[in-house]
Simulated assay, not measured.
Amino acid sequence: MIPRILSIAGSDSGGGAGIQADIKTITMLGGHALTAITAITAQNTLDVSAVMPVPPEMVVAQIDAVVSDIGVDAIKIGMIGSPDVAEAVAERLAALFQGREIVPIVFDPVMIASSGAVLADPATIAAFGRLMSLSVLVTPNLPELAALAGVSALADEGAQVAAAIGLVRDHQAAFLVKGGHAEGPKLVDRLVGWNGTVAEWSGERIESRNTHGTGCTLSSAIATGLGAGLEPEAAITRARFYVRSAIEAAPGLGLGHGPMGHGLGREHFRSKPSLRI
């Protein structure tokens, strides 16, 4: 059966991130996308001009509607919108899926858009704890990792890994620390597992302004792999290659942080038989 992937996230009117990026990614990787929209944003490549959270009961109603009929093989959680929505989603998922081995959940703790707009206030971030504890994998970038760990900055690799290990211990979820905000020509992502092991993926940094939605795309790609039965490291490897392919194929739209080429990068991605399932 085609993997059924539920994205619980906000809507991006510019089509580069959020639910729109998730639907494109899940579809390109062979899954069927289901959605529960948590917030509506008015945004483009330059900024986010307005945000309207969806009421918690409506978010839960969307989840219930698709789970009860179509079913779900994996879940990606992105922008939450408000602390009330965070609590309602955590409560519903805990009731529906008692035990994270039943349906893997990937949580991308979205806090700031590529344009710099704040998408999660301190109260919403404080409510992330239960969502992390429900997840098999959390995918913060470096500023998000620092915020989750309650520190102002993470100066080096050692501090980053130590912060992730602390969060792994607290929430019993693996953490994929994305290195895009670090300096240097190499980009390194580190997976800190439940037993403290660290796996690394590295590659040359792609110099591009068209990186809007990379985090959304990566997390939904990983969720699609997990929903299709891939082991976590294989799902991450495939997802990273898809993200890089989409950046390289970006159509160059807008005046700011442009969207990636989710569909345009498909042929490059499909040229790697070892990454197909």
Rank of each mutant, 00 (worst) to 15 (best):
V59H: 01
I165N: 15
P55S: 09
R270K: 15
F107S: 05
A235P: 04
G116Q: 04
G129Q: 10
A86G: 08
F128I: 07
T38C: 03
A159I: 09
S49G: 07
L148Q: 05
G10H: 02
A159P: 09
K24L: 03
L142K: 11
P109W: 05
A36M: 04
W201I: 03
A223V: 07
P140E: 06
T197W: 13
I19F: 01
A42W: 04
A147M: 09
I236Q: 00
S133R: 14
A221V: 04
F241A: 15
M58Q: 13
T41C: 05
I102T: 13
M111I: 06
A234R: 13
T45D: 06
Y242C: 09
N210P: 08
A88V: 07
I75T: 10
A228V: 09
G193P: 07
S152V: 14
I23H: 03
M58G: 13
T27I: 04
K24P: 03
G263A: 08
G31Y: 00
A21V: 04
M111V: 01
E248K: 12
Q172P: 13
A94G: 14
A246C: 12
A223N: 03
A153M: 12
Q98E: 14
K76H: 06
R270Q: 11
R205T: 02
K186G: 10
A159R: 08
N195K: 14
P83Q: 02
T38E: 00
S133T: 15
M1P: 15
S220Q: 05
D64W: 11
L191E: 08
L218G: 00
E233I: 10
M132D: 10
A199V: 13
V198N: 12
G229H: 07
T224W: 01
R276N: 14
D170W: 14
A239W: 05
P109R: 09
F128R: 08
A126D: 10
G14T: 01
P83C: 01
T224V: 01
T124D: 03
A235F: 02
M1I: 11
S152H: 14
